[in-house]
Design a binder for these strands. Structure first.
Lengths: 148, 148
DNA sequence: TTAGGTGCAAATCTTTTGCAGAAAG
DNA sequence: CTTTCTGCAAAAGATTTGCACCTAA
């Protein structure tokens, strides 16, 4: 965990930015909730517990900055808010989402199932893939059980 | 084109809704711009040319209604606005997006490449897939050419 | 001392809602 | 008539911005 913070600090500094206490608190919240997909408001509330004086605008600015640096990924699941995920070390994003339309849960699959498709895309469409996003909407295993 | 409007009219009526002139004008705009991904504001401006008295709220309400009926699909590409696409006749959504990070173009692949994955999901994760969404970010063939 | 950061409040932008009147069966 | 629909204006909610102060190299 400390190692990942150190790395992010270096990413920031290499671009002339500082890892301020506010930014560090924000990153720690993301780190401690890696499997969730927090909104800016979510992050704000959690950061407030550690650093009550922080402002919402700072959280937005931090998330935007980290997003520009590809440290976090900004996502949109269709409810009116942006959600943010820490990226893994290689700065690539290769997980897929299982979005339950019944209970709203968002699960993840961490494997990358799309490499064959990406190769096909480059060949057939001359489209050079940088990243992708794959979401499935459906009924999750928990709701499936309950329905019986 | 008239046939598709007629079909949408029946879909509305079967649920107790009317195909009002405003709604028809909205559908026609979507029909005439099927390969674009229009925002509510885009649709509003185009509908205004045919029916200048229409209100933005009506466009939003119409798009929301059509979305509920699965006549259009509401999407979000990460810029702050929702975008709307007419669905095909079977009311399924099986196209994939190629989003160019350089010129911003959004191309589509109409084939469904994911059926094998969906089967695997149901087996391995007990997740019943209703719909999916697959977007690729990268460099499109046009930009690829220009760069040379 | 100087550029980068921050908190606050105000501004902006998209989308939704309340309401009174209009349209359609 | 009664239900659905509309336009307008106001409200709501998320995000951004202006600004004066702050803080670290």
């Amino acid at each position: 965990m400390e190692a990942r913070i150190e790395k992010i600090k270096q990413q920031l500094q290499s671009q002339g930015y500082k890892l301020t206490p506010q930014r560090e608190a924000t990153v720690r919240v993301l780190l401690e909730n890696e499997e969730d997909h927090l909104s800016a408001e979510d992050v704000y509330m959690m950061v407030k517990e550690k650093a009550p004086e922080i402002g919402l605008a700072t959280v937005y600015r931090t998330l935007e900055l980290l997003s520009d640096l590809h440290v976090v990924e900004k996502m949109n699941f269709g409810d009116g808010v942006a959600r943010y995920d820490l990226r893994n070390d290689s700065n690539t994003h290769h997980h897929h989402h299982l979005i339950c339309v019944q209970c709203g849960a968002v699960d993840e699959i961490m494997e990358d199932w799309l490499l064959p498709l990406e190769e096909r895309l480059e060949k057939e469409f001359q489209f050079k893939v940088i990243d992708h996003r794959l979401d499935f909407q459906g009924i999750c295993h928990r709701c499936n059980k309950q329905d019986k």
